[in-house]
Design a protein around this nucleic acid. Structure first.
Lengths: 237, 237
DNA sequence: GAGTGGTCTAGACCACTAC
DNA sequence: TAGTGGTCTAGACCACTCA
């Protein structure tokens, strides 16, 4: 890590995670940390700001920075959670089945979601995620071709994100998410083991790149019993 | 507003919202803004950082700050969303029915959620939310008595948050949220108009005060067709 | 009153983009 | 090469908490 404030953030994060710094105690003061890390106070404050944003500490004016009890929660991987990250917590290795992969003209819905003209093409990828032998998640991805010229079944069976970030050098910056519950479509019934469930949980994702361009729309359709979402919301004053 | 950076944030936010600054264009550079607002660059950067965090702009190194198209989304009230905020967007005035209000000893589950000893008491509040004549949400709140000495039916029928923040002077700082889908309990069936639905969406909220103390646990149980959650996730690099 | 975090400044150097 | 945002510094003053 070349950034000083990130290094300090990582150092303190590790100490909190390992229990080296106990929950409900105070961190050393910003002034002390300034000396400890041989840096300026603003740099310390940047690191503490990050810790606060990610739910590790809560800063209290006039008192100090309180360490929050992290073990009370199954802590989320903040930000986007991909299927791969999810699956790593499972006992059995998960399986991805690529059900459809084609380059096509966007229909009106997708065109609208991605701000495209009708001339531009999109990749449509439909994948089924199987965990412990059960088909539980249906992922429908739409990627603007202008950003992703080629796509193969092998890439889709592994991780599209990996390919985008490591091979194409695209950097995903942020996503806007919407979660709703609907009745299953025929497609859901066909491709998933719905097992008698009458609803699916749909996570709609609008994914942006580093340069603020919107390039992907994703729907992740989950069987309700296997769905779980964790969020950390800081109130705006 | 006495904070300079908040004033600048508000000013730019207003210009974006009103369309005064167009989506997909660049903000003036940090240097120009420094002159415009007669301040230092770090102060400008604080304001821009906030705008970026709240999804208004995306900063691109070497280029500038891109204004994001806000109208593509039904923009969330970032942070906690209370029933009152939700209901303001409905056509018909909603109704709250206080189904239970009592001061009791916490059972093991609540004790654990709120880090309480068995001696301390909690307020248990159960409320049904009715929209357009249909009972759609069941809210179960547990508040530690040490923070909230008194509570009446009138307060609960209005807004508990209002009372806490305006009357008691408590400041809610942040919440950790978990969303799951489960089968309805007998209580759900009894109190809600489930209308044949086989699932309820449960939002579990752990609410913290300004001084990092955990004081409230809330379950908000929604009929699935009326549930909607919007999130804005920034990726951590 | 001593110590804490919150805000603000004026300047420096660096990494990246665009031309 | 000029202009952009990203990092870092050393200092100042303020608002708040706690003994």
């Amino acid at each position: 890590m070349k950034n000083k404030f990130l290094a300090i953030y990582g150092d303190i994060e590790a100490k909190i995670k390992s229990g080296d710094i106990k929950p409900d105690t105070l961190l050393p003061s910003e002034h002390e940390l300034t000396d400890l890390y041989h840096t300026s106070r603003e740099t310390i404050r940047k690191a503490l700001h990050l810790l606060s944003q990610n739910g590790y500490i809560q800063k209290v004016r006039g008192k100090g920075s309180v360490v929050i009890d992290i073990n009370k929660f199954d802590f989320p991987v903040s930000g986007l959670v991909s299927f791969k990250e999810l699956a790593q917590k499972m006992d059995e290795p998960p399986k991805t089945i690529v059900s459809k992969l084609q380059l096509r003209k966007p229909d009106q819905f997708v065109r609208q979601q991605l701000n495209l003209s009708s001339k531009e093409h999109v990749w449509e990828v439909i994948r089924v995620r199987e965990i412990n032998g059960q088909k539980i998640i249906l992922d429908k991805d739409y990627l603007a071709q202008q950003f992703v010229p080629h796509l193969t079944e092998v890439i889709c069976a592994d991780s599209i994100y990996n390919y985008l970030e490591n091979e194409l050098g695209l950097t995903i910056s942020f996503a806007k998410k919407e979660i709703v519950v609907e009745e299953p479509t025929e497609e859901d019934e066909l491709l998933l083991d719905l097992d008698g469930f009458h609803n699916v949980v749909i996570i709609k994702n609008y994914v942006y790149l580093d340069d603020a361009s919107l390039f992907q729309y994703t729907e992740s359709r989950h069987r309700p019993d296997k769905f779980r979402f964790v969020d950390f919301a800081r109130r705006i004053h």
